[in-house]
Write a protein that binds this DNA or RNA. Structure first.
Lengths: 135, 135
DNA sequence: TCAACTGTACTACTGAACTAGAACTGTATT
DNA sequence: AATACAGTTCTAGTTCAGTAGTACAGTTGA
């Protein structure tokens, strides 16, 4: 009952679940080695398909956040890699928050802020002039 | 021939075109009031459907970046709003670049950086414990 | 071994996004 | 008015992500 999927938000359920788990780990609500809710019970709790939960868990394992043991359950990863990343993320979060705050103060919308970052993470080319060729 | 759509990149063609135009404006290659290539000539140039170009133009107009005049053509918007935003974007770009550089130096991948920002632009809740209820 | 859990694999339905083709309406120029 | 070129609208086909249903396989503990 703590988690409520919001289909109207446009964000896929399995992604919401993933963020939930990650956030729980970052805040310490879930600790390394701890077991997560089973796929089926959690699916019933959230009134969604078990396969949707399974997908979220699978993706989380792919990212190294959790560890899946067939027949045993899902557990929070305690690997050095995951912990190191979590630390880096924590450290970076404040920098990110500060930057976003600054941009918002300048009157930029969330969507525009998003554009800025996407543009910075990618590359660009040029555009043909008005009087382009004609076959 | 300056622009080449990359379907394999997974990014929709019309979005690529939009970024192209925006970038051209930000760098000054396209100035306020200047006319953009027509929908059909540009479509032919890029070997895509005119409708795809039209969609990009329509979205750009919705964002206030350009101005569409039925029967006349598409023109770079010279409105105060657009210019003010462009200025704010330019000013914010350096801050964004610096932040991203810092995060990369910490060993975070682009994907993880993306996660950080998305998390900061949204909200979170909690996760039910392992021993949840059973109907 | 057996029963009750666990995650896994496979198949299929649905809806939205993207692209495209063709026909339409408005503007400018002669 | 007529022509050429501009954006607009409508319809449709294709693809893919998301979700769900069902059957399968591994683990644990009595």
């Amino acid at each position: 009952m703590l988690f409520r999927p919001t289909p109207s938000s446009g964000v896929p359920i399995y992604l919401q679940l993933m963020e939930q788990v990650k956030h729980s780990i970052e805040t310490g609500a879930l600790r390394p080695g701890e077991q997560l809710p089973g796929i089926r019970p959690l699916a019933e709790e959230l009134v969604i398909n078990p396969n949707t939960v399974a997908k979220a868990y699978r993706e989380l394992e792919h990212e190294g956040v959790i560890e899946l043991r067939h027949g045993a359950g899902a557990f929070v990863s305690g690997s050095a890699r995951a912990k190191k990343e979590t630390d880096a993320m924590k450290a970076g979060l404040s920098a990110v928050a500060a930057t976003i705050e600054k941009l918002r103060a300048r009157g930029l919308s969330d969507d525009e802020i998003r554009r800025l970052f996407e543009a910075e993470l990618a590359g660009h080319a040029a555009l043909p002039k008005t009087g382009g060729h004609r076959g």
